[in-house]
């Protein structure tokens, strides 16, 4: 079981890192999600005891599984959920303002904008912020 779990964590982490190194921003977000899932799986695998569900009334004499790691895994899932929504919103914002999902294009656009900025002799007016993807971490 330990071997299977560690293999699963390793494969998830590896594929996540591969995606993270791509230039396409949507793949980067995918990589972040995969790596976070690897972490969640690792949390689950760190449980101290395994057995039946730890809900009262407890069955006599049978071991119950460690409820703490499940709470931690749930929290990690919630945080991943919020963070992926946030990242997608950010990527959407990038796409709206550049019509591209490539970080290199973004750097090029940045240089261009700086040249314009320099020519106009001041900072350009700023665009409005993205939506409020931030309120969800609070729950546990």
């Amino acid at each position: 079981m330990t071997l299977v779990l560690s293999l699963a964590v390793a494969v998830l982490f590896g594929s996540g890192s591969y995606l993270l190194l791509q230039r396409d921003l949507v793949r980067v977000v995918g990589g972040v999600v995969l790596i976070s899932s690897a972490a969640t799986l690792f949390v689950m695998s760190a449980s101290l005891t395994k057995g039946t569900a730890p809900i009262l009334p407890l069955p006599n004499g049978q071991p119950v599984s460690d409820p703490l790691v499940q709470a931690m895994a749930l929290t990690a899932i919630v945080i991943t959920f919020g963070v992926s929504a946030l990242l997608l919103a950010l990527v959407y914002r990038v796409y709206v303002s550049h019509l591209s999902l490539d970080l290199e294009d973004l750097a090029a656009a940045e240089e261009q904008a700086e040249a314009v900025d320099e020519a106009m002799g001041g900072r350009l007016e700023r665009a409005p912020m993205t939506a409020e993807e931030r309120d969800e971490w609070a729950m546990r």
Binding site: L25, V94, S97, L106, A127
Partner: peptide, 16 residues
Amino acid sequence: VLTAFGGQPRQLRAAV
């Protein structure tokens, strides 16, 4: 979210 504050290409790239 704060790093993206401003919405310029520089800031978006920094935020990512």
